[in-house]
Write a protein that binds this DNA or RNA. Sequence first.
DNA 1: AAAACTATCTTGACAGTGTCAAAATTGCAC
DNA 2: GTGCAATTTTGACACTGTCAAGATAGTTTT
Lengths: 203, 203
Amino acid sequence: MTTLKKHYHHGDLTTSLLESASLIIKEQGVENLSMRKLADIVGVSRTAPYHHFKDKNTLLCSLAEQGFKEQEKDLKRLTHQKNASRESFERYVLMYLEYARSHSEIYDLMFGRTIWKAGTPTDSLKEASKQTFKAWVNWVEQLQQGGVLPNSNTPLRIGQTTWASLHGLARLLIDGIYLDQTDQSEMTDQMIKNLCLNDLASP
Amino acid sequence: MTTLKKHYHHGDLTTSLLESASLIIKEQGVENLSMRKLADIVGVSRTAPYHHFKDKNTLLCSLAEQGFKEQEKDLKRLTHQKNASRESFERYVLMYLEYARSHSEIYDLMFGRTIWKAGTPTDSLKEASKQTFKAWVNWVEQLQQGGVLPNSNTPLRIGQTTWASLHGLARLLIDGIYLDQTDQSEMTDQMIKNLCLNDLASP
DNA sequence: AAAACTATCTTGACAGTGTCAAAATTGCAC
DNA sequence: GTGCAATTTTGACACTGTCAAGATAGTTTT
């Protein structure tokens, strides 16, 4: 973005576009990203991006895909660590919510309707999201075996519901409905309690 | 919408716009609602709507507000019914998810970023949503007293988290991420189990 | 070396969007 | 009927995504 060559051929427009787009949506939100502004910032004509991305939707899918890849890496690291303790799970929940907060626009692309309903998810994106979810379910399985998450159902089902809960919380924190910082942290604490298997041992 | 008078003055443009807008977003999604098309359908010029709604955002807020009002009514009915049983809660959860599914576009307006983040919620909308949430918390309190929801925290906090979970599930069902019908119903069942206080009585 | 080819980028154009300012039309109170 | 206020229209502007056709540069072939 900073290095703008004045050659006819840009060099590596594809990644340049992705980087700039990522920056724009981070700072101004996805609704303020236009292909034309993006092209302008990268220093190229309006339609140049269309030789690297079929359309705007495809570009957004690419952005979302990066997010999934990153999340999958985090999950796999946790799973290989083989530390399925409650503390470990708590750390992940906090990490998940922090990611959602600090990359709220990417998060919205990953799970929001912009791509999944209004747009059309790329095959590549669908695959990435599926892979990430699989990594999540794997970790949930470990957490069940570690006695952190309930064993009352399959890893898939427990994974779906606890993730839905986490996702719901993330959305509320992100979408501008809950802004009070105190509420946010206490909601998170309570949510963890809701998700985890209660320790029923008497004191 | 069906009755189009050819007078200069439309009669009741405000409600006519709301009705048509509601129909359009239901059938084509909120991203396919344009002020111009809307005006055209109602049989009025492009800018006529702007004398009834400050801008598109305000119109959408009005739509969302209707949704909140309806939801509040449902909740108050439940509360006055004083039947804080698990069955009653289950019915509400199913009803909530069914509303989200069948009015997915309105639901998205009520809780999504279109209004709350990308746009600016009207004072009137903020008030309506606050009122609805209060009604929800009131019912949660009854459910806690009825031993359906956990008593480990205040009605506000428990209300926030269980609603977040419900909302997360609703979003997944709505936003096109989970489409498989079998998964949907089993996820719902499991979610209810997660939310409710487990009956620990031995058989 | 020149010529042919391919990848990349640009210009021009079209249909669509939200919304503002000024002008036109109408219904109602007097 | 006259005046006023509510309502609607026309014109305009600055945007948007994206297509078709042409221009340019780097690469390969001869």
